[in-house]
Design a binder for these strands. Sequence first.
DNA 1: CTTGAAATACTACTACG
DNA 2: CGTAGTAGTATTTCAAG
Lengths: 175, 175
Amino acid sequence: MNKIKVCRPPARQAASTPAAESLQSLDRIDRAILRQLQTDASISNVALAAKVKLSAPACLRRVERLKESGLIRGVVALIDPKSAGAGMLVIIGVVLDRSTPESFADFEKAAQTVPGCMECHVVTGEFDYFMTIRTRDSDSFNRLHAEQLLYLPGVRQIRSFMVLKEILSTTRFPL
Amino acid sequence: MNKIKVCRPPARQAASTPAAESLQSLDRIDRAILRQLQTDASISNVALAAKVKLSAPACLRRVERLKESGLIRGVVALIDPKSAGAGMLVIIGVVLDRSTPESFADFEKAAQTVPGCMECHVVTGEFDYFMTIRTRDSDSFNRLHAEQLLYLPGVRQIRSFMVLKEILSTTRFPL
DNA sequence: CTTGAAATACTACTACG
DNA sequence: CGTAGTAGTATTTCAAG
């Protein structure tokens, strides 16, 4: 019943490259593990092992290696924003007054403390930054906008794009 | 080994609680559980129970209830994008040709299939959609742009904002 | 309706082949 | 990598606040 297993030994015992594991060193089984854990990491190790057609200890060793290598950054629970009272999502584009290293550093430091800020990125184009902010409703966003966002250091302009409908929002990408 | 369970009535305080469980029905312990699981869900149930000062069975029941209520949408492993060969992040703003229901539906259906698309939202303002796309490098993005994005149905204009630096990217928001 | 203690079933983990 | 054995955990049962 069992088919031939293409268990090519990963041979990663180079002993000199403990860090910076890349996609290239992942075989078919590692990718299957990652695909599963990206979808549902609450699965037990034995069930995971069965899915990838491996013994439980071997599977566990791979998962631990993937964690230690940093390829698996962590395992977290995803909360439904609406149930958690943060049903509104706003994307804002930010333009700074001056494009100096100090301006950028100051802004970035302050941006991290904005409550509900989920993402903050330096971008090319007509904006310096894009941020995504989760908040309760338009009232609470308006308050945040007036009391916090407009006072972020070095801000020349803030353009807000309210999210009317979330079509797709995933943490998982193809391997 | 997930067993089919009968949904317990969510009535926590009295027999007057509404349908969906919301943030209001969460006590201090539930919030502590959620805060922990948002940060690290690989913790064992006994350790979690100790952290929130509860017995293991009681803690497990709360976690299961939070899952069944939908407040915990899932438990997933977060992959390091760079290690996974998707080190480049691009935010694109999309303007459609026509603002008809069919246009929107067609676009949304097609957008979901774009490889590496992490987010896609309908927004107010000068764009109809914002999408965030993870890809390997500028070459692969250029290919995606030329071969897929420009052929999404009903697209009038696509403006790309390449992410130069990811300041903040989290899945966890305050409770 | 929730909690905690004890008992059972299962799983993670280790040592070894 | 797999098998077997041990330690620890998840999960059920049940009694009580």
